[in-house]
């Protein structure tokens, strides 16, 4: 497998007050692959994901050191425009949070933020991305209905489409199927496998089987430390570290 780095994380350290949440992480995230961050809960998976789009910034008392390079540009540089960083990363959170507006406006929200006003272009964008997450046929007759009227699974696909509509390079998924029923989870997983043709995808998951199904590349975090990383087949079949082996076997969690 040929891996070209898309995001290069260098000596990343994150502190919440005195708590050292991420310890000296250095790793490359490959382009147009699905990278799964696995590890027990509370070990910094979500923090790592949130560092990538700088949502960690909004936590009170957080301190971030190190570099995260995207196309050679350090996105942790305080001089950089944080909205531009976030625009490059579509985020899918644990539970779907549709914005308090219609289905149409949810998708159009991002493009409108970035200055698009042309009604026809917006219509095209809404249709295109709803199709991309295969939601179009289910909602095309009620685009003006409140997004909260959709089922959870539909809402999660809507949120995915909303993220895609700002044309990100990277999709970040924070346990994106954990609130969904098996059918809807399958739906989202299938979308991810399609989307990796065009996007770099990073997901946090605590479901090992999901990581096995989806991931090309795996990072195993344990209490803020990056224990092991590598191609998924390698890490799952032939883990180098004892800790990884035990986690995969299920003896530590």
């Amino acid at each position: 497998m040929e891996l070209r780095p898309h995001v290069s994380i260098r000596n990343l350290n994150v502190f919440y007050g005195n708590e050292h949440a991420l310890k000296n992480i250095t790793v490359d995230i490959p382009q147009k692959k699905i990278t799964a961050i696995i590890g027990p809960s509370g070990c910094g998976k979500t923090t790592l994901l949130r560092s990538l789009n700088r949502l960690v910034d909004s936590v009170d008392g957080v301190k971030v050191f190190g570099q995260i390079l995207v196309h050679g540009q350090d996105i942790l540089d305080p001089k950089i425009e944080v909205t531009e960083v976030r625009k490059k990363m579509g985020l899918l959170s644990q539970k779907p949070y549709p914005l308090p507006m219609s289905i149409y406006d949810n998708i159009a929200f991002g493009p409108r933020l970035h200055g698009l006003r042309d009604k026809k272009r917006l219509d095209e964008i809404v249709e295109r991305y709803l199709r991309e997450v295969s939601l179009w046929d289910e909602v095309k007759d009620r685009l003006q209905a409140p997004a909260s009227k959709l089922s959870l699974g539909q809402q999660q696909r809507l949120c995915l489409a909303r993220g895609l509509a700002v044309e990100p390079e990277i999709i970040l998924g924070d346990e994106p199927t954990s609130a969904l029923d098996p059918k809807s989870s399958q739906h989202i997983e299938a979308r991810f496998l399609e989307l990796k043709e065009k996007y770099t995808i990073v997901i946090v998951t605590h479901i090992l089987r999901q990581a096995r199904r989806l991931a090309d590349y795996v990072l195993f975090l344990y209490f803020g430390e990056l224990i092991e990383h590598g191609e998924a087949s390698e890490v799952f079949e032939n883990p180098k570290e004892a800790m990884t082996r035990e986690y995969i076997k299920g003896t530590i969690s």
Binding site: N53, L55, K87, S93, K95, Y97, F109, L113, V166
Partner: peptide
């Protein structure tokens, strides 16, 4: 209002005021 709703908007590149 759930914090995640704000994060949804922020992650689309909205400023705090937006």
């Amino acid at each position: 209002i759930p914090y995640e709703m704000r994060e949804a908007a922020l992650s689309l590149g909205a400023t705090g005021w937006q």
